[in-house]
Structures are given as C-alpha cells and as structure tokens.
Computed example of a mutant assay.
Amino acid sequence: MTSVNIDIVSDVMCPWCYIGKRRLEDAIGMLPDDVEVDTRWRPYQLDPTLPKEGKDRKQYLQDKFGGSAGASRAYEAIREAGRLEEIAFDFDAIPVAPNTLDAHRIIRWSASEAPGVQDKLVEILFKAYFEKGLNIGDNEVLLNAAEEAGMDRSITESLLSGVADCEAVEKEIDTARQLGVTGVPCFIIDNKYAVMGAQPAETLARAIREVAAKKAEAQ
C-alpha cells in the first residue's frame, strides 16, 4: 500500500473549492486499490477584509462584479460545473458574504478529531453556505456544523469565544501566499507537487498516481 498525502488549500466561501472537493472525491475513486490518500484541509481567505459579521451580499456583489448582472455572468460557468457535480448552488439564497476566519479555526481543530471528521465538517460548511444560504461566519452556524460533524460543542464554543489559533490560521494563509498560492483550490500532493484550480477528476487522479508510483519506486 502506498500512502499519498494531499493538502487542500481552500476557502469555504469559494464555489470552485466546493466543486474541487467533488472532483477530488471522484479522482480518489479512480485510483488503484494499492494507493491510499490522506487529505487535510488548509486555510485560505479570498477576502480577509470582510468584517466578522460579514457584508451584505448585494453590496459585496456590487463591489466585486458591478452588480447582480455581472455576478450572474461570472457564476454561469460555476452553476454549470455544479450541476455536473450534483451541487445545487443557490446563490440567490445567500444574504451575507462571510468572513471565514472562524470557519477555518474550526476546520483546523477538526483535524485532531477522528478520521473523516474534518472532511465531513468542510462538506457541511460548503453545503450550509452555497445550498442553504447560511452565514458561515456566524458562531451559531459554525457550532451547529461542528456538532453535526461529530465535534464536542461545548469545547468548540469555548475555543471559538476566544482568539485560539487566529494567529496560526492567518500565518498559514500568509505562508500559502508566499509559496505562490494565488487562487484556490490548490491541491498540494506530498508537499512536492501542486495542482492549481478545480481540475477535472482525471487530471487529479493522474497526478496522484504519478506521485504514488514514484513513492513506490523509492521504497
């Protein structure tokens, strides 16, 4: 068995990251039985300037795209890609563009939980924001997501109420930028190879197989 580690640099307010998650899952399903993949979600913020309470979505779209018409054009490809990945994007249901720092703090803590909890939490957060229109910068929404993923609510609430790991998450985001990550998702395979963007599952699977083959040869 050859084990391959994948660090996924992502922001939970990025629709292409949600699509990239689906494509990575498809890619893993294409791998031979002797290749095992261990994933870890890493933080990134598309807009770290957003306030803790977030920003009115309409104003956010106005500032970023010049209004809803510009946003609709920009999201056309995303909607189509989402349909192919069975993601029911509902951008009209989103009232707030969130600051995702606290979401990344919880995702970081979930890495210390049982296997699969972090991936489950990320899925819950993507779905909450893009399909249900929930504010994933809101503490109650985050605590509900953490509890649903299997984390202890009281411990998470205690950590979230303070500044635990704020600096660590911000430092990790800065490190990603210094390493040349300018957009997400970015899939870093075994700390050596990077696949930028929500590439097709076949592309991801091929990259993983190549890394696994080189590791197997070196063993």
Score class of each variant (00 low, 15 high):
Tyr44Thr: 11
Ala207Tyr: 10
Ile124Thr: 02
Ala207Leu: 09
Ala216Val: 10
Lys127Phe: 12
Ala207Asp: 00
Lys127Arg: 12
Glu123Phe: 10
Ala74Lys: 08
Gln62Gly: 09
Gln219Leu: 13
Tyr60Glu: 05
Ala69Cys: 05
Arg22His: 14
Leu159Trp: 14
Gly70Met: 09
Tyr129Asp: 05
Gln118Ser: 03
Gly180Lys: 01
Ala128Met: 03
Asp152Trp: 02
Glu25Trp: 08
Val4Pro: 02
Ile155Ser: 13
Met13Val: 15
Asp63Gln: 13
Ala69Asp: 15
Leu142Gln: 10
Asn191Asp: 15
Ala218Thr: 14
Ser10Pro: 13
Met151Pro: 01
Ala194Ser: 14
Phe91Ala: 07
Gly150Phe: 06
Val184Pro: 13
Ala176Leu: 01
Gly116Arg: 02
Pro48Trp: 02
Ala149Met: 04
Asp7Gln: 13
Gly197Glu: 05
Glu148Asp: 14
Pro115Met: 07
Met1Gly: 01
Glu140Ser: 11
Phe91Met: 05
Asp38Ile: 15
Asn5Cys: 07
Gly116Asp: 10
Thr2Trp: 02
Tyr193His: 13
Val122Pro: 01
Leu159Met: 13
Lys120Cys: 08
Ile8Leu: 08
Asp90Cys: 07
Glu123Val: 00
Thr100Val: 13
Ala114Leu: 12
Val195Glu: 09
Tyr18Asn: 05
Thr203Arg: 06
Glu172Val: 09
Cys14Arg: 02
Val122Asp: 00
Asp102His: 04
Pro98Gln: 04
Ala207Phe: 10
Ala218His: 13
Leu50Cys: 04
Tyr75Trp: 12
Trp109Glu: 10
Phe130Asn: 01
Arg209Trp: 09
Ile6Val: 14
Glu140Pro: 05
Gln178Cys: 07
Ile94Val: 06
Cys14Leu: 06
Ile28Tyr: 02
Thr49Asn: 13
Lys171Pro: 07
Asn5Val: 11
Asp7Thr: 05
Met196Asp: 10
Leu24Val: 07
Gly20Asp: 07
Ile155Ala: 14
Ile124Leu: 08
Arg105Ala: 00
Pro185Cys: 09
Arg108Asp: 02
Pro51Thr: 09
Ser10Gly: 11
Gly197Lys: 04
Asp102Glu: 15
Pro95Arg: 06
Asp190Leu: 00
Lys21Gly: 07
Ala77Arg: 13
Ser154Ile: 10
Asn5Met: 10
Val9Asp: 03
Thr156Phe: 00
Ala218Ser: 12
Glu131Phe: 01
Gly133Trp: 02
Lys64Phe: 10
Ile136Asp: 05
Met151Glu: 11
Thr156Ser: 13
Ser10Ile: 04
Arg209Asp: 08
Leu125Arg: 01
Glu170Thr: 12
Leu204Glu: 03
Ser112Trp: 12
Ala71Arg: 05
Ile6Lys: 03
Leu46Val: 14
Asp38Pro: 00
Arg57His: 12
Glu86Arg: 10
Glu172Gln: 10
Pro51Tyr: 08
Asp138Glu: 14
Val4Tyr: 08
Met1Gln: 08
Leu143Lys: 04
Gln45Gly: 12
Asp7Lys: 09
Ala97Gly: 04
Met30Lys: 09
Trp16Val: 09
Leu142Lys: 04
Glu36Ala: 13
Leu142Ile: 03
Arg22Thr: 13
Glu148Asn: 05
Glu80Ser: 11
Ile208Leu: 02
Gln62Asn: 14
Ala216Trp: 14
Glu76Val: 10
Ala146Lys: 04
